[in-house]
Design a protein around this nucleic acid. Structure first.
Lengths: 186, 186
DNA sequence: CATATCATGTAACCGGTTACATGATTCC
DNA sequence: GGAATCATGTAACCGGTTACATGATATG
């Protein structure tokens, strides 16, 4: 799903400025699909050129003027088309898991710090997924998405906390052994 | 973790060609961190220029010649430094979850197809994580990584299969309702 | 007969991020 | 007084993918 389709999708829920679209995406599913404002404004401009959105400039005193966008009928159709076309990928890019594969070269403190970071991050995402799911007036799809995130993160965090002591125990042993062997070679 | 560090990491486990590094990464943790050969070869060349890897060209009959790379001592240090420096991020980019947020505009067949795809993909990743974890001579870190993947994917797949009927039921109702409202407006 | 494996390398492309630029107001 | 919020826009950069280029051997 590209930036353009996301913009159209948010605008289908009501008119908004670029700034608000960004905020909405970040709050609703930012952990799973985010866009920077550097991507949003050009996307909105191109959508406007193509007549898929309309725009009203609003003067504001005390703060910058803003452009409120709303979907046109052509935009409505483009959104539908975009949603049909978008691949439904779900990719995980984890440098954390990559690092674990080379863990035998990681000092125990470093491994500990990485695990701390992962724990905190998972906990934050979980709290966020839960807060999302609590919302009463959610669509079935949104509730499902929040539930899926919650289920996976809960399992991940449980595993992390349960297996961490064993990992650190075994890792320290392996690490020291590797160091010793390296010293021997010299 | 950039391509260069990954290459160094794989080479720390023994000499290999670019082709073999790619294969190794894909097989060991490709679902979580992959690199294309178009990124590997330039990375190896730059590592070679900097003296972090050595290279032996091997003539082969019947198949293309190959370049076998191995780590130098400088490379060993660079790897260690790279592993200390690399952020341990774990990012999920899910267009699937994005699409779910706009599910009310998705025809039921489309939603069904997306769920099918997700089910198959999760199942494949799970099978792969399990096969990885079965390996006996794994480091603690690798076993932990496989276990973490397995735990999260199992939870995800369970949730997906358990909640899918309800999602589809509610979604169909919402979808038809939306369509009806749209027809009314006309 | 077509496809996969082995094997390397480059160039074009692509989507997205970061940083630069500007600036008032409100909250801690 | 400093940080965050509101608000838009552009340009440089960046890492990575896809496609182009080549080509023999083995497998289904």
């Amino acid at each position: 799903m590209d930036t353009r389709t996301i913009c159209l999708g948010v605008l289908a829920g009501g008119e908004a400025t670029g700034y608000e679209i960004r905020k909405c995406v970040s709050e609703c599913f930012g952990y799973f699909l985010d866009i920077s404002h550097g991507a949003i404004y050009p996307a909105l401009a191109s959508l406007h050129d193509e007549g898929l959105v309309e725009c009203t400039e609003v003067r504001q005193n005390g703060r910058p003027d803003k452009k409120v966008y709303r979907l046109t009928e052509a935009g409505e159709n483009a959104l539908e088309a975009g949603l049909m076309r978008s691949p439904g990928r779900h990719r995980v890019r984890s440098e954390f898991i990559g690092l674990l594969h080379f863990a035998s070269r990681l000092p125990p403190e470093r491994l500990g710090a990485l695990l701390d970071e992962r724990d905190a991050d998972f906990a934050a995402m979980l709290a966020y997924a839960r807060s999302c799911g609590d919302d009463e007036h959610l669509h079935a799809g949104e509730r499902f998405a929040a539930g899926l995130g919650e289920a996976m993160l809960t399992a991940g965090l449980d595993y992390l906390r349960r297996e961490r002591p064993r990992l650190e125990r075994e890792h320290t042993r392996e690490y020291l052994q590797t160091k010793e062997e390296a010293a021997h070679e010299r």
